[in-house]
Design a protein around this nucleic acid. Structure first.
Lengths: 111, 111
DNA sequence: GCAATAGTTAAGTGAATGCTTCAGTGTTGA
DNA sequence: TCAACACTGAAGCATTCACTTAACTATTGC
């Protein structure tokens, strides 16, 4: 379900916004409340909540409300899925280059 | 320059679109012309060219025109930069969890 | 030369995005 | 009990996005 293209879509879309990446960055250093996430950002709390909803819908962030404060944390499995997608494509390309290099070296030898 | 936040922004934004990810996927299996990239996509050539421009602006793809055909290929360095950003955050979070685990194990021992 | 090929560019359109403000709701501390 | 706090939700608005069509340019093969 993590490799389902729709989920991948939501994840990359979530990471596309600088404010949301800043929120993920903050959360990578430990859990935070909505207000704490909002603090460094030059926008209304309401806007931050909307970004948070995008992050949660993408699966990148999970949150829980205790009393009046919602505490957010990163979902590393989702991050790993995005990472994995990129890594597979990059490796595929690099392996191709290697094979090409081998081939060229071989045909050089033959001359 | 690859870790410059503006460039990172362009890269994640480029990867956010499923058509563009499909193009990257295709290119990970080897170079392709614009028409070849367009072939599996249910949209006009013009739309594909626009997506390609986004990919090139982000640094993820490089292309060169010979005669009337433009050949595109992946720029693995850029992919690596995006991968790296995610990886750093995920590791930061996971290290935090490990330290927390150690701490809890230690305080358990003390009881 | 001329038609087919491969791509490019510009203009327009409708939907999605990233905000804002404002008016709530539930929680907590004094 | 009541004011401050920490969100939450809806409505509105400007901008950006992902397309489309249509007109165009530059190659290539016959």
């Amino acid at each position: 379900m993590l490799h389902d293209p729709a989920q991948l879509d939501l994840m990359f879309q979530a990471l596309a916004d600088p404010a949301r990446r800043q929120m993920v960055d903050r959360l990578s250093r430990g859990p935070a409340s909505v207000s704490q996430l909002a603090e460094p950002l030059a926008m209304s709390l309401s806007a931050v909540v909307q970004h948070l909803n995008v992050l949660e819908a993408s699966g990148l962030v999970r949150s829980e409300k205790l009393g009046r404060v919602r505490t957010c944390q990163i979902e590393p499995k989702a991050l790993r899925a995005a990472e994995h997608w990129i890594n597979e494509r990059r490796l595929s390309w690099e392996r191709r280059l290697d094979r090409l290099g081998d081939f060229l070296a071989q045909t050089d030898d033959e001359n």
